[in-house]
Amino acid sequence: MKLDSKTILIYVEHSGSKVKKNTSELITAVKKAAPSAELTGVLLCVPAERAKLCSDIEKLNLKKVYVVENESFSIFSKENFASAVKAVIEKAAPALTVFSHTTNSSETAKVLASRTQLAIICDAINFAVYEDGEFVAVHPMYAGKIRAHIKFENQPGGIVTLRPNVVEVCETASGACSSFETVPFTPVSNDAVKIINVIADASKKIDLSEADIIVAGGRGVGSKENFKVLEDLAAAINGVVGASRAAVDAGWREHHDQVGQTGKIVNPKIYIACGISGAIQHTVGMQTAKCIIAINKDPEANIFKIADYGIVGDLFQVVPELASELKKLING
């Protein structure tokens, strides 16, 4: 599929009050791969959020933004969200529709693919246009041990989801968005599946895959209670706590904290691995972090082979000291 001068639709992800950073990541990645394509956006929101979000969108340099506003969007339903995007696709006829590969958006993208019969490439980390003009998405397989370069085969259009945090956002000169168009929409009531409750997890502030700073613990932490020292470090530097499979299997952390092949694949700015030996099934989940710091008492631990900085020592001494040193730096 070739993208020259074609329309690309960006799914604008937001928190209700503001457009999320990963929307800018999508725009940066698409612009790099297809500079001559026309970028449009699709915004789904409840009516009360519209004004605030649209003023945020003005900064994104999109040619046109299709707005679907409906009270039903206050609760996430992949069927309802996908059918709203489908309505926009029928209007805008984009060559490519791009989502961030976050929990909800990737679900929406898959249901959209299923409903529209459009081809989908999930969880890409980069886009490229080959010499023959073909659009290619790079998707990590085997948890990132291998990268597959994938193209759409005989397709009029397609859907791609881009992993959050892998693209460095380029700020472009902001120009006003040329137009907003409201797309009428009747929500689909899904009688087959109903959400009856959402139990909020107060400790889960940011999803690991979107976090900038992760403090992760492994077998060396030793117990559930001992994770307190990691939580203190995370709190000091505005990070979140992750864990290795060993720590999750031991019951010290919840599964949604697990980093690795059977957990989350993360790309933070800083990854501090504490008491983690560095088994391949863990390291594939975090090896694309910008700066890896390893703290382990075993100088032979594998984790030191991929760490930018390592300290050989007792994590119960090192971690609290590091928290206080970094706090001093941050508070300047």
């Binding site: 081809a119 041990k145 990268r147 370069h149 193209k151 390592g310």
Partner: peptide, 17 residues
């Protein structure tokens, strides 16, 4: 609907200090 053009390995991470 999609086709793998090629496979590659990620660049190795240089050893730190």
């Amino acid at each position: 609907k999609i086709k793998i053009v090629k496979l590659s390995t990620p660049p190795p991470r240089p050893a730190g200090k």
